[in-house]
Each structure stands twice: as C-alpha cells, then as structure tokens.
C-alpha cells in the first residue's frame, strides 16, 4: 500500500501546539492519520484534540511506540528537532519547516544517515498515501487512491498535477514532496527506488525544478527502471543567480539549468511535459506503450 507511509505508521507531531502544528494536526486526524502523540517542551501531560502531549520525543516514543515524526517547529529549532527524532531512531522523519540554515542541514544530513533513519525535507509539504494517511500539509481531498506515484520538489505545483491526475481518474499510490532546499534528507532516487519496488505503483510522475543536479542523477536511475516515468521541470525562464523562492531553486555557475535537466531526461527516453497540464496525457501514453 504505497511507499514510506501506510496504515501501520504511528505519528508524533513535534511542535503540535504551534500555529501550523495544531492546524495541520487537525487536518491529518480528519484524514485518518494515526497521530499518537505530540511533543512541545514544557507542555507535557496536556492533551491536544485528544492527542497526548509530551515534553520530549523520547517520552513520546516510549509511551506510544511511534515510528514517524512530523516537524512543525520554527526554523531556528528545526535542526535540533530533527536530531532529537533521529537520536530516538524514529524511522520516518518529515520536516515541514521552511528556512532551515543550510549549515545546520549539512550536519543533520550526516547524522540522520548514521542513525539509519529516513528524513523527508526540510521545506517540504510531506507525503500522502491517499485513502490511508497523510503526514504534513498536503491537502487530502484533491487526491484519490490509485496506482500512480508522484515525487516532487515543490508544493502547490504538485497539488496542481495531483488534482489533474485525480480529475482524469488516475489515482495515486503515494505522493511525496521531497522539499525545495539545497540539502534534503530524501532525494529523487530514493523515492524512485521505492516506487520501482512497490507492487501498488504502475507509473511515476517526477516534478523537478532548477538548481542542483538531483534531476540529472534521477534520470540516470530512471534508465534502469521497468516502470514508466514522465517529468516536468519548472524554471525554464528563471534568470541565473536568483533564488526562485525555494532556497534550492537557483541556477549557479551555469549548472542546474532547466535545459540541462530536460536534456538528461530526454536522453534516457523520459518524456518531459512543456506545461503541467500535459503531464496526464504523457503519462497515459507512457503507460499504454509499456503494456
């Protein structure tokens, strides 16, 4: 049933009593996500919407057996929150927080890897396995269960494409927003590997953008996959040297251009949509050709 997130996922919310944390906890509960605990230092012993709140991740994990944590704490404390979750061997850590200093993420990345746990984000919308659970801020009702996997560096652009898939009757197995920062815990290849191995996924949509070389590496990996992949790359009109909202969306020193990424996908036979609305049709064709 989808990747990374299924009916056995028991979630802690770090920063459950904050503005975003509390709002999205309600949304996740409504969608059916198993939220077993919240963590806000100093508010241990209280409850939020029926969810027990603890002072530390350690207490929360001990009491509930949680295996996932979603982080809504402010950027100043986000690295610390990720380290706390990783130190307690929470298997899946999803960091929604935007604006985490890259220097912090460099050390966090190495530690998370050493602990053998998975980090998604930061600066990401989270993930959803439609009909089962969602972790993060992705709107639930524009999704429907199905067999298409979606992986993306952005938020609303993904919702746009997810919604058009839903309207075209193409449900999703899991949609993963990996985040728009330069250093993120889970990259395209990690997610593509999981979709390739997932019995419930038939084809994949990859939404990339300018900056870095993750798309180029992903293209190399796609050439080894048996499942069809279609892509979209945003930022074809972005000027070099300017940060386009996401800290990671920047063309620097002539690398990370949209052209380079489109070319990398074309080279391995992956169709790249010119506009987001073409994704559905390209995917339908790719699935048909595969059969």
């Amino acid at each position: 049933m989808g990747i990374f997130l299924d009916e056995n996922t028991k979630v802690i919310v770090q920063g459950i009593t904050g503005r975003d944390g509390s709002f999205h906890t309600k949304q996740m509960l409504e969608y059916g996500t198993k939220i077993v605990a919240g963590v806000t230092p100093g508010k241990g012993g209280t409850e939020f919407n029926g969810v027990p709140v603890y002072n530390t991740v350690e207490e929360a994990k001990k009491a509930t057996g949680a295996n996932c944590s979603v982080i809504f704490v402010p950027a100043k404390m986000a690295a610390d929150a990720i380290l706390e979750a990783a130190s307690n061997k929470i298997e899946l850590i999803v960091c929604i927080t935007e604006g985490v200093p890259v220097r912090d993420m460099l050390t966090v990345y190495q530690y998370v890897k050493k602990q053998g746990v998975r980090l998604i984000g930061p600066n990401c919308p989270g993930l959803i396995t439609p009909g089962v659970a969602k972790v993060g801020i992705i709107p639930g009702h524009i999704h429907t269960p199905g067999r298409i996997g979606v992986v993306s560096r952005s938020g609303t652009l993904t919702y746009e494409v997810d919604y058009s898939l839903t309207k075209a009757g193409m449900g999703q197995s899991t949609c993963v927003g990996i985040g728009g920062d330069p250093i993120i815990g889970t990259n395209f290849i990690d997610v593509l590997k999981a979709f390739e191995a997932d019995k419930n996924t038939d084809g994949v949509v990859l939404m990339g953008e300018i900056g870095g070389n993750d798309e180029e590496l992903a293209a190399e990996f796609v050439s080894t996959m048996t499942k069809p992949v279609v892509a979209f790359i945003s930022g074809r009109t972005a000027p070099p040297g300017k940060r386009m909202g996401h800290a990671g969306a920047i063309i620097s020193g002539g690398s990370g251009t949209a052209e380079g990424k489109v070319e990398a996908f074309n080279k391995v036979g992956v169709k790249v949509a010119d506009t987001p609305s073409q994704v559905v049709q390209l995917l339908q064709e790719a699935l048909k050709n595969k059969k």
Partner: peptide, 8 residues
C-alpha cells in the same frame, strides 16, 4: 502561491 507553481 507556491514557488514551484510560480516558476511553472
């Protein structure tokens, strides 16, 4: 709204 959608 959203950086990816803005670029697209």
């Amino acid at each position: 709204n959203g950086a990816g959608l803005a670029m697209a």
